[in-house]
Design a protein around this nucleic acid. Structure first.
Lengths: 105, 105
DNA sequence: GTCGTACTCAACCGCAAGGTTGAATACATC
DNA sequence: GATGTATTCAACCTTGCGGTTGAGTACGAC
């Protein structure tokens, strides 16, 4: 659990954090607003935001007393990039297998 | 950490498990073969395989004394499905924002 | 049946994750 | 300056994860 890929996958493994990410697709939000939708303490949500920030999934901006969380979609590319690489590799393997079977029945 | 999506993300958060998945794109493999590439005990790799199986990322087949692990790519769709849904939603938001700014400068 | 091989199960350990509560900080308002 | 609000920091607790080792199971070979 050290590289960026691991942090990103781990960050999205938690349902509350996935929900936070989902809400941030609509608009930037403050900690209070995000916490209002969850049955955990305010501070717990604050922790979740720190995890998301460490994973590069969000950035944060201070405005007065409020801290606005903003979704950073670039990390999504990192994840789908990894997944697609190996999905493609698996499909290629099946392709080759099919070809072989078709050639030697 | 209960639903399939959480299990899948969590499973791929570990570098060893990602490496196992990567190797399985080339071919089905036994526990011994997979363990030979990593600096952890044989039993630790066996545990990792159980996690991957619980996440639906692999299936397993017994053949004599050997247990072959086989990659199941369908879970990849589950992950990219989730990611793309919210990536698209975020892009739509930016689209609307751009339109608004272009209309009222 | 015995031996070696492939693997799982079980018990344990250290550590980090996610949660809590209470205090501290930072800013806005009066 | 005092009060209220938004947020973080710090200390703590419990649980689960990834690792280990040692014993148990299941199968093949002799």
């Amino acid at each position: 659990m050290d590289d960026e890929l691991s942090r990103a996958f781990a960050a999205l493994a938690d349902p509350i954090r996935r929900d936070i990410v989902a809400r941030l697709t609509a608009d930037d939000m403050t900690v209070t607003e995000l916490a209002s939708h969850h049955d955990v303490s305010f501070q717990a949500v604050s922790k979740h935001l720190r995890v998301l920030e460490a994973a590069g999934l969000i950035s944060r901006r201070r405005d007065g007393q409020q801290r606005w969380a903003h979704l950073e979609v670039d990390v999504f590319d990192l994840l789908t990039g990894w997944i697609d690489t190996y999905r493609r590799r698996a499909e290629l393997r099946h392709q080759r297998l099919d070809d072989l079977l078709r050639r030697e029945p």
